[in-house]
Design a binder for these strands. Structure first.
Length: 773
DNA sequence: CAGTGAGCGAGCTTCCGCTTGACTT
């Protein structure tokens, strides 16, 4: 048995516990609580509405074991150090620990540190305090408010829209951002203009021919205007009227926070936010990086010093520059450092290719943040046109000193357009220029971009909605609820009108551009839109983008001891609950129903709406002797935008493709999208490849044969005496399939060698399936 | 899991923020 240890330190994360344990030595035992240990009970909201909103806490089931262990250790220890994070949630964790472990005040110390360095931790031990009850109360208010909002709003949706839906302070506003943006895009009308580019030639001082590319400082709104201008150019003189050089500098971005890491990993590697977090978690647990859920851009002195040393050694003294960054984010709590390598001189780490990529990104960003600014020189050449006020401009940028750009350049969400980089040819002032050609080309304004997971996180962070620990889960939730889908969508190729002046003649040119291609973008669904509109109509205060900011102000007042937390909740809850009640009783069911028009032949009304199984179109109504007909909407079609013609087409399904193997082949829209039905089996069409409206019988047969072959490959073993039992190969390896249920095979078992009896035995002994939808 | 588009009515769903694994078919 181990000797009792005098000092028990409790932190939130086990990886942190390990590191701190090393710094504190053998008089201290460092353990972790694995985050919160208690939460509100789910019964009756877990809140006593008649008694000042008293929270009803229960130990979370998955924390029972750790709580029992901590209880025992706390009893044995002389002093218990509560070292959870220094923010609202961390303070609450410390308080819950003190309550649950029944810690007497005289043997309990609350300590905090923002960085995991020996000095910071020893300093914290020297400066203990007690639990700050005001801050705890601010957290309780936050928790109770979120529970009340979520658990009162969601049931309204179950009744008025669809079961199992959800609403909440954070997720509903996230969806609203997407719906609002989608509507902006839907009503967007792109404007055309004509951009004029001039290509000139001249002989430089040595008489060598050189070329200069430039752009007119004005666009024309029609091809006619552009043509008139270019026509004028035929006889005009072009002269370099000015050369302007301006020095400029570019400074590095701050080191990563959770949100900026997610954005960069998305831009540079196309990682989803949850993928980024999983990789970062691994790097953290392996000791390669600091904590990955943070809103701070701060670096410890130790990190600053080692970064400076690394930069000086690697690139030279002139590349190092100590920089301190300040957060600009609303409501940042800054309990940790920025995300950085644990050891700044370690250039590579990670167990696989993706971890290595992410680590390298973190290293570059952290190192770059401590490097000198890049120095540039930007040159603009002005080209005047005789008797015209317009000018052609040509610009170039020369890098004088690369500075931080030597290691890292931040990505951008905006697509870049045009020239403006690189060296310019050696023109001199008053140089006369000859026309190579002058071209006018149609341009179209583009609608605002749809959100990616990462750009949505960025927006949420800017608005102070959600926390580093919840960005990824929130993004998952709104997709799981099917408020939003992440998809690629093909764009269109657009023909561009244009003319070109060359050799004194103007001719038409044909060019085209790809437009509107969307890669891994978030699209709101019909359900998302209907739920959003319902909530905006009935609960405009919760859906207001400033709701979180305004309650955060109240939480701050509670933390400062200026506001009693349950009074704040009461003031919110009374009118809110009244609205909930009123909406439950009086509001209409909401299905997003929209009338598209009448059937061209029968005159029946055609509507689209959300039905029990999702968005659908309906012809006619239920009457004494009339039965309505139904059809599912296809992927990418929205209730809000579908046309009568498109809706009518949906009723062409299911359709017959003739006979195959003496049985009819039918293509239709099934629960999982378009499919082929044949002999009681279903064969999914390949998305983006097959169109149910046009698919041929030959292609259908091909799909059937492919599926049959794939199924055959899945079979490892069958048994003649019992066709229900099979050993199959699945996504997670071999498994046993029996009467539509699946069973695991223990590791180190050869699936092909299993006998019938062994299989039956495994089925018998299998643990009962857990409840799942 | 492969239809259907409403209905007996029981029993369930749901929030946000802290943390990690466990484990899927």
């Amino acid at each position: 048995m181990r000797n009792m240890v005098d000092n028990l330190v409790i932190v939130e994360s086990p990886a942190k516990a390990k590191t701190i344990g090393k710094y504190l030595g053998k008089d201290f035992l460092v353990k972790s609580s694995f985050g919160h240990i208690r939460d509100l009970s789910k019964k009756d909201y877990g809140i006593d509405l008649n008694n000042q909103y008293q929270p009803q806490y229960i130990i979370s089931p998955d924390k029972k074991k750790i709580v029992a262990e901590l209880k025992k250790l706390a009893k044995e220890a002389k002093t218990v150090w509560l070292a959870s994070d220094e923010d609202r949630e961390g303070e609450a964790i410390a308080w819950h620990l003190a309550e649950v472990l029944k810690l007497p005040a005289d043997k309990t110390r609350r300590i905090v540190f923002h960085e995991i360095t020996k000095n910071a931790i020893l300093g914290a031990i020297d400066n203990p305090r007690s639990v700050n009850q005001n801050l705890v109360n601010a957290q309780q208010a936050r928790r109770v408010l979120d529970r009340l909002v979520g658990f009162e709003l969601s049931p309204v949706l179950w009744k008025k829209v669809k079961p199992s839906l959800s609403a909440g302070r954070v997720q509903s506003v996230a969806v609203r951002l997407l719906v609002d943006r989608e509507r902006e895009i839907l009503k967007f009308v792109s404007k055309e203009s004509f951009r004029v580019s001039g290509f000139f030639s001249f002989n430089d001082k040595k008489g060598k021919p050189a070329h200069l590319k430039s752009e007119l400082n004005q666009r024309f709104s029609s091809l006619e205007e552009a043509r008139a201008f270019i026509d004028f150019c035929k006889t005009a003189d072009f002269l370099v009227s000015g050369i302007e050089t301006k020095p400029s500098t570019k400074s590095p971005a701050p080191p990563f926070t959770t949100s900026t890491l997610q954005q960069e990993a998305s831009r540079k590697f196309s990682f989803s936010v949850s993928q980024t977090m999983t990789l970062a978690q691994h790097l953290y647990e392996a000791g390669h990086i600091t904590y990955m859920r943070t809103d701070s851009v701060n670096l410890s002195d130790l990190a600053l010093n080692t970064a400076s040393k690394e930069i000086t050694e690697e690139f030279g003294k002139e590349y190092a520059k100590r920089r301190l960054f300040k957060t600009k984010v609303k409501g940042a709590q800054e309990a940790h450092e920025a995300i950085r390598p644990s050891y700044m001189n370690k250039r590579e780490a990670g167990a696989n290719a993706n971890e290595k990529k992410l680590y390298s990104l973190i290293w570059k960003r952290a190192i770059a943040s401590q490097m000198s600014a890049a120095r540039l020189e930007k040159t603009t050449i002005n080209i005047s046109i005789s008797n015209r006020t317009e000018r052609f401009l040509s610009s170039g940028e020369v890098l004088l000193f690369d500075g931080f750009l030597k290691v890292y350049m931040e990505g951008s969400d905006e697509e870049k357009e045009g020239n403006g980089n690189g060296l310019l040819p050696p023109v001199t002032k008053d140089q006369k220029l000859d026309i190579d050609n002058i071209e006018a080309l149609q341009r179209f304004t583009h609608y605002p971009p749809r959100f990616t997971e990462a750009s949505l996180v960025k927006k949420m962070e800017e608005m102070g909605i959600g926390r580093p620990s919840t960005y990824a889960p929130t993004i998952s939730t709104i997709q799981n609820r099917e408020y939003v889908v992440k998809e690629d969508r093909p764009g269109i190729t657009r023909e561009l009108k244009g003319i070109v002046l060359s050799d004194g003649k103007i001719t038409s040119i044909n060019k085209s551009e790809k437009s509107g291609y969307e890669k891994s973008k978030l699209f709101p669904t019909d359900i998302g839109m209907v739920v959003n509109d319902f909530l905006v109509e009935h609960f405009s205060n919760i859906m207001d983008f400033n709701f979180t900011a305004s309650v955060e102000k109240d939480f701050d007042s509670i933390a400062d001891g200026e506001l009693v937390w349950h009074s704040m909740i009461h003031k919110f809850y009374i009118p809110f609950h009244k609205k909930v009640d009123n909406t439950q009783k009086n509001s209409q069911r909401s299905s997003g129903e929209r009338e598209l028009g009448k059937h061209p032949e029968t005159g029946e009304t055609i509507i689209v709406r959300i039905g029990r199984y999702g968005p659908m179109a309906q012809i006619g109504e239920k009457g004494e002797d009339s039965k309505p007909r139904f059809a599912r909407l296809q992927k990418g079609q929205l209730i809000e935008t579908i046309t009568l013609e498109e809706a009518l087409k949906l009723f062409n399904l299911p359709r017959s493709l003739g006979e195959y193997e003496d049985t009819e082949l039918i293509v239709g829209m099934g629960r999982f999208g378009p499919d082929i039905r044949h002999k009681g089996s279903f064969y999914s069409l390949k998305k983006d490849l097959d169109d149910p409206m046009t698919i041929t019988a030959d292609r259908a047969k091909e799909l059937i044969l492919q599926k049959r072959e794939a199924d055959l490959k899945k079979i490892i073993k069958t048994f003649d005496n019992d066709p229900d039992l099979m050993v199959l190969n699945g996504r997670y390896g071999p498994y046993i399939s029996y009467q539509k249920s699946n069973f695991r095979i223990p590791k180190n078992t050869d699936p092909a060698a299993l006998s019938y009896e062994e299989c039956k035995d495994l089925i018998e002994k299998a643990p009962k399936p857990k409840k799942k939808k």
